[in-house]
Amino acid sequence: MKINERFYPILATIAVLVLLYGYGIIEHRAFSDTYVLGALLTDNAFLIITAVGMTFVILSGGIDLSVGSMIAFIGVLMAELVAGFGMHPVTAALISLVVGAGFGAFMGVMIAKFDIQPFIITLAGMFFLRGMCFLINLDSVPIDHPFVSAFSGFKVPLPGRGWLTASALLMLATVIGGVIIAHYTRFGRNVYAIGGDRHSAELLGIPVHSTIIRVYTLSGFFSALSGVVFAFYTASAYPLAAVGVELDAIAAVVIGGTLLTGGMGFVLGTFFGGIIMGVIQTLIAFDGSLNSWWTKIMIGALLFGFIVLQRLITRSFSGMRAGTT
């Protein structure tokens, strides 16, 4: 049977991951150890959680630039709530998630109701949240609490020398949740439909406005969750944290095979995309002789490749409104 063309990009993603990981195993003995895998999952947890939310935004044909600032803002907010107000970190985390989802919903309303470019609205959100960080706190502050220490100390051993941390487990749960929302709910399918062709989606009777609002709410929620994980993981908050993470998240989504114009892609692909970025980083660290900026060069090259691949696939489609000649 012919392989469904919808799967081409994610198959390419998996191929790239296998190649890179295989190269790592051949070149560096330590790469085959589960220790590396555990570290990959932990170190990229906050990025992948953000990227899961970003996947929905990009699938809907939008973009969310505010997620990096959101991570920093949530960190600073958590520190303030825990250290300043003496709250339990779990309570602070719940409040943070509500704040994140609320801010996402606010941006979603602006985008849907006033029909404004998501780029502009979320750019404003990015500046706004980054500024708000400094309003609360100018410096890096530690988040000291027994729960936070317990969180970062929590480990599930893997066969071999590796282990899964609480961050990694939360990230894996997020990915599974994202897959279910994307593929097994009407909301998820409506996101794909809107990204594929918004005008048609409207004529097909899909509630376009409320779906878009929910997409940005979801992205706000996931980036706030990422901020919580980041704060727990580093046990500190810093107003200049996670600068540029929004771009890393977008890169993870695209390398994961999601069409940048929306309508096609997989949440699982985003997971692989995030891991690929981590593997590249790890490979360069293992090599030791290469400058860490090589990570960016590799990711840039991969992005070029994936964007061209996507273009080739969608160009074969008849009836595509975007890009038809």
């Binding site: 709910t185 009407r186 399918r189 062709d197 097909l204 595509m320």
Partner: peptide, 27 residues
């Protein structure tokens, strides 16, 4: 004349959008 469906979705999805059969809230 201009087909108002979503080219990136599968044929099944285009037919069943907003009318998918659900079990326990999931499609």
């Amino acid at each position: 004349q201009e087909v108002n469906l979503v080219p990136t979705l599968s044929v099944a999805e285009n037919l069943m959008l907003e009318r998918q059969t659900r079990k326990f809230g999931l499609i």
